[in-house]
Design a binder for these strands. Structure first.
Length: 821
RNA sequence: GGGGCAGUGGCGGAAUUGGCAGACGCAGGGGACUUAAAAUCCCCCGGUGCAAACCAUGUGGGUUCGAUUCCCACCCGCCCCACCA
């Protein structure tokens, strides 16, 4: 009597054996082509979420497919172990962040193992291990030595809930809330460490070397926000330079006033005695505004006149200088020339405060008058009121491609009034965090020598365990009685350590390098491993990191490349994003909503293979969607019917003529499709095609197909096909039921036989005026003439052709005949 | 306001990229087996219509012999950015 399908039994059995045999150990092997498949590492929050499974299991299937194709595949995993949740847990439970984190890792590691991924656990990295953050610190020092890390006093984003600064990227939404806790972010003037990500702005929007989703490329491009234009030097009446960036130097003659950000350094000097009070009040209001809800979007412009004037360099006009909060200190120079006739915001401002409007671009057939214009004009036209440039055509193009802009830039340059310039929205990356559970920034401050890096031989700067983590807004390390005391690396005098820690995104910017050699002590990675494995061939994970991790890690790689530490221009050649698994109610899963699906429960009930298969099947992987707890029974049935197919005795007698040929055709067609879908990283159709094939096999077995000598080979190919997606049942059926040599995961991916896929007869679609009228079965090699003849005579089409003149017949060989009447 | 992604049965989704719309699965209906239930197996399953046939891929146009697929305009949903000069 055949055994029933007992997934949990066979799954833990094979997981143990694979582990004991080191089946998934990935070693440098020059004789084989490498494939580095990586999935975004989890944060050890406590429990593996279904979202983790969704990220890891299909990625694992893809990696297994590559392995069967003959690649030497590395599919590592680790833990992004530093970060705020550990500290918050420490505060609320009175448990040390380290203890909490490592306990969680242990638990989550076993949960990951329960899905049976082909992970080489010898390569695991944990970013909170001293042997890891040693090198995070080392990288900081390299960036510092190469002039890519600097300290700056500036207003920075501050989360009052998390009690720390945040990178610009970690501030979300119109209301500017904290990425992690959702609290409204405030501004704080602090001296902090930054990385010069802006040095790489242009390179970061060049995606020519990588195969990344358009969505991510667009997000990153918009985030970098490159604009082409010119820097133009205005002079204040007092003689100070007042430089502005503009994308529209062609409209310079229409600049009738200037606007500075309230925080602009020249404001005080410019302000006339009679305006001093008004300016002071406005500055104060503007400061408050960033702190209060800006969500109440009254887009009505506010601002105040400083009493100061500037000279428009192109025409000598004396123009007033205002301050307004619609000008941002952080972009360009924090100052603009206002051209109300051709900029919507400037127009609104001019109308509100009754400032002069001079049109300088005019399309044909128009006759603009600054006094009567009802809105600004942004489009193309001819320059007017612009002295020698009158009549020059201005197009919709940006930058130098626009003839008007190009001419003006060249002229400005020649006159020494300005120069071509590019501006970016991208900010330098603020990495200081006033928190405990992170990698200490390895810098020392000495009253005499200033800032110096900790000597590399003294790394790592260890995080002390005995710390009070009172959430005070000061770095907890600062409150430690002795930790910060050290000596100056330069002069040896008593000095103080930097007590801030690094943004955890710093840890995750290079973890792919640590997988190469997690225990290597002479450097961040072993060069031999690097030379073999890098770059990453496919990186999978959520899209939410498009403007954070995925920009930082590219920046990091490019910076290391310029230091000669790594090679190539990009770390990750291909990126694919998975969507999100939502709760059954279509909402984001959350404990408070009670719609969380527990993978542990599912594995207990259905087994890991069913969960893996269903995650691949239930939605388009890149989109995700709501979980359906009934839907998983479809995958469960697929596997139990597969089990029966292999374990139940043969049926029927002698199979009918042609059956085996038909089965083989279905087999190879499915194999071809599955192969393509794995290449394209489209998982749902891999499973549906496998189900479809199984249905064919079940039918064929009933008709006696299992009584032929071909049957064994058919079953083998089917098993090989499903092995990457459902590795345990495939192994059991392969090694135990078919008695083939262990392991199925060392077998070669079968090749679809194009000959087998061919048919003798095809079904030709017969259309009349594009409407389906009949289907005719014809020989595959039918001539066009015969196809036309047969179609015209077909019973379905004939009635529609009666008494009609056939004007044209379109024949798509192998597909259809369309008769046009 | 700008940008992106999507819109196909009751539901998740297919459609070899311009050629049979709805594969595969869930749910539903009917039947077989069973004392009964579960499991399993078989049949039906977009709409209208007795049928022939017609209608149907968010809406309206267009290109084409032929459009879910390409183009234009619009509607709805989600995501990102948002007074960025």
């Amino acid at each position: 009597m055949s055994r029933a399908y007992q997934p949990r039994k066979i799954e833990s059995k094979w997981q143990k054996k694979w582990d004991a045999d080191g089946l998934y150990e990935a070693n440098v092997d020059e004789s084989k082509e490498k494939f580095y498949a990586m999935t975004m590492l989890p944060y050890p929050s406590g429990d593996l979420h279904i979202g983790h499974w969704y990220a890891i299991a299909p990625s694992d299937a893809r990696a297994r497919f590559k392995r069967m194709q003959g690649y030497n595949v590395m599919f590592p995993i680790g833990f992004d172990a530093f970060g705020l949740p550990a500290e918050n847990a420490a505060i609320s439970r009175g448990m040390h962040p380290k203890e909490w984190t490592y306990k969680n890792i242990e638990h989550m590691r076993s949960q990951i193992k329960s899905m049976g991924p082909m992970v080489d656990w010898r390569r695991e990295m944990i970013s909170a291990d001293p042997k890891y953050y040693h090198w995070t610190q080392w990288f900081f020092i390299q960036l510092y030595k190469n002039d890519l890390a600097y300290r700056k006093y500036s207003p920075v984003d501050w989360c009052p809930q998390c009690n720390t600064t945040l990178a610009r990227e970690q501030v979300h939404g119109e209301d500017r809330h904290c990425e992690r806790c959702g609290t409204q972010v405030t501004k704080k003037d602090l001296e902090q460490w930054f990385f010069k990500t802006t040095n790489y702005a242009d390179e970061l929007i060049d995606f020519s070397l990588i195969d990344w989703p358009d969505r991510v490329k667009t997000l990153q491009t918009n985030w970098v926000g490159r604009s082409e234009g010119a820097d133009v030097i205005f002079k204040t009446e007092a003689g100070d330079d007042l430089t502005v960036f503009t994308t529209r130097p062609d409209t310079l003659w229409g600049a009738t006033f200037m606007v500075l950000a309230p925080e602009h350094p020249l404001v005080e000097k410019l302000t006339s005695p009679e305006q001093t009070e008004a300016v002071k009040i406005y500055k104060h209001e503007a400061e408050q505004k960033t702190e209060i809800q800006r969500a109440s979007v009254d887009k009505e412009k506010s601002g105040v006149f400083t009493g100061g004037f500037a000279i428009n360099p192109v025409n000598g006009a004396r123009i007033p200088i205002w301050i307004a909060d619609y000008v941002m200190m952080g972009y360009g120079f924090g100052a603009i020339m206002a051209v109300p006739a051709h900029d919507e915001r400037d127009f609104d401002f001019a109308r509100q405060f009754d400032l002069e409007i001079i049109p300088v671009i005019q399309p044909e057939g128009e006759n603009f008058d600054g006094k009567t214009m009802s809105e600004s004009y942004i489009g193309p036209g001819l320059m007017i009121n612009s002295a020698q440039f009158d009549g020059v055509a201005v197009t919709d193009d940006k930058g130098r491609k626009n003839p008007g802009i190009a001419k003006v830039i060249d002229w400005l340059d020649g006159e020494g009034l300005g120069k071509e310039a590019v501006s970016y929205k991208l900010r330098d990356w603020l990495i200081s965090r006033q928190r405990y559970w992170g990698a200490p920034i390895p810098m020392v401050y000495c009253d005499d020598c200033g800032w110096n890096p900790v000597p590399e031989e003294e790394l790592p700067v260890l995080l002390p365990d005995d710390v009070e983590w009172l959430p005070t807004g000061e770095s907890p390390l600062k409150l430690h009685p002795t930790w910060k005391d050290t000596s100056c690396p330069s002069c040896g005098k008593a000095a103080t350590r930097e007590t801030d820690t690094m943004d955890t995104f710093m840890c995750s910017s290079w973890y792919h390098l640590r997988y190469l050699s997690p225990d290597f002590e002479q450097g961040p990675f072993d060069q031999n491993e690097y030379d073999y494995w890098m770059p990453i061939d496919i990186y999978t994970g959520g899209i939410e990191h498009a403007n954070m991790h995925l920009i930082y890690t590219r920046f990091f790689h490019k910076a290391l490349r310029d230091m000669g530490i790594v090679e190539g221009h990009e770390p990750m050649m291909q990126l694919r994003n998975q969507g999100m698994v939502l709760g059954e109610d279509g909402e984001k899963m959350s404990k408070s909503r009670g719609n969380v699906v527990s993978p542990d429960d599912l594995v207990a009930k259905y087994g890991a293979d069913t969960v893996r298969g269903y995650l691949m099947f239930f939605a388009r992987w890149d989109l995700g969607g709501p979980w359906n707890s009934q839907g998983i029974t479809g995958t469960e049935r697929w596997l139990s019917r597969t089990w029966s197919l292999f374990t139940e005795p043969p049926m029927g007698g002698k199979p009918p003529e042609g059956l085996i040929k038909d089965v083989k055709r279905a087999l190879h067609t499915a194999l071809d499709r599955v192969t393509q879908d794995y290449e394209k990283v489209e998982f749902n159709t891999i499973i549906s095609t496998s189900m479809e094939l199984m249905n064919v096999l079940v039918e064929a077995k009933k008709k006696g197909a299992a009584n032929t000598k071909d049957w064994a080979e058919i079953l083998e190919i089917y098993l090989l096909m499903i092995a990457p997606s459902v590795p345990h049942i495939a192994e059991e059926l392969w090694s135990e039921v078919l008695g083939k040599p262990y392991s199925i995961h060392n077998q070669k991916w079968p090749e679809a036989d194009q000959e087998m896929m061919k048919t003798d007869e095809i079904t030709l679609i017969v259309q009349v005026n594009g409407k389906l009228r009949d289907r005719i079965v014809v020989p595959v090699d039918i001539s066009k003439e015969d196809a036309e003849k047969t179609a015209l005579a077909s019973p379905g089409a004939a009635p529609f052709l009666e008494g009609q003149e056939v004007r044209k017949v379109i024949i798509v060989p192998g597909r259809l005949v369309n008769i046009v009447i």
